[in-house]
């Protein structure tokens, strides 16, 4: 299903996008299973219409949006972003959406709104992976208010000129290109503006390895492996590109010029 947009070249990388097939068959979306191929095989059970999104908390105008209202809230843009997974692989993805700030401004955050959390659908019938207590469901992620208001933070509805496939987070997800992919909550049904820093699903599951910020950082690797470099998916070549070299990971996934100022004076080793 096509989704009209105009390209935002200023906020797009010039790198070649990863093939559609890879973006839609190699997914981490535990709500549909833990293996990379599970989401594309199991996400057919998700019904994305009708769909509503509740926006509440520290706002002057709390509101429940229908998905069609959200699609029309601001002009749809195509933005080609780099996408870096905490597991050490990366893609280049032509997303469709608009800056999350448009939605936040529409509900008028109060002075107490310091953080925003966004919550995925909870429905084990449509999301069979939720029968497995591997994470605390529903999936919860969040941002600091200034991160959420940053123009790069994308409220995302589509991919490659079409509406999002279910396995990529339909009908609406978050994309924060300078953070690891898991910060981008998928199939969002609730957005809450809050005063205190949320405890995200991954922080709750393995606190020593997953912090709130999770900015892409080649020098900090609280997890099991080095984050110094990454495997770019979908390069092609002999043996499926097995022997093409990894590429060095960039600070803030290459978006440092736009976002580094958000973290001025912060110890990014401590606040990983």
């Amino acid at each position: 299903q096509a989704l009209a947009s105009r390209k935002n070249s200023a906020l797009s990388t010039t790198q070649t996008p990863t093939p559609y097939k890879d973006i839609t068959t190699y997914n981490n979306f535990y709500e549909f299973g833990t293996s990379k191929s599970d989401p594309s095989q199991n996400a057919g059970s998700l019904k994305t219409r009708p769909w509503t999104v509740v926006v509440e908390g520290e706002v002057n105008k709390p509101r429940t949006f229908g998905i069609d209202d959200l699609l029309k809230l601001a002009p749809m843009e195509e933005r080609i972003y780099r996408h870096r997974c905490v597991e050490g692989w990366a893609m280049v993805v032509p997303w469709l959406g608009y800056s999350f700030s448009h939605l936040l401004k529409a509900v008028e955050p109060t002075g107490n709104a310091k953080y925003v959390e966004y919550i995925t659908l909870l429905d084990p019938a449509e999301m069979p992976g939720q029968n497995d207590p591997i994470l605390q469901w529903p999936y919860l992620e969040g941002l600091r208010m200034d991160e959420a208001m940053h123009p790069l933070t994308l409220l995302t509805f589509g991919l490659y000129g079409e509406v999002l496939p279910n396995q990529d987070g339909a009908p609406m997800r978050m994309v924060i290109p300078w953070k690891y992919g898991f910060k981008g909550g998928k199939s969002i049904v609730k957005i809450r503006l809050v005063e205190k820093q949320p405890i995200t699903s991954w922080m709750r599951a393995v606190p020593q390895w997953y912090g709130f910020y999770s900015n892409v950082n080649p020098d900090v690797s609280p997890q099991n492996w080095s984050q110094a470099n990454e495997r770019l998916i979908g390069q092609g070549g002999a043996f499926g590109g097995l022997f093409s070299p990894r590429v060095p990971t960039q600070m803030f996934n290459g978006y440092g010029a736009q976002v580094a100022s958000l973290y001025q004076g912060m110890n990014l080793t401590k606040f990983f």
């Binding site: 097939k21 043996f239 499926g240």
Partner: peptide, 15 residues
């Protein structure tokens, strides 16, 4: 699988 380009989207991880 390598010879026939069937190691999946992330051949490194598969191997």
């Amino acid at each position: 699988r390598g010879w026939t380009n069937n190691l999946g989207p992330n051949p490194e991880q598969t191997v």
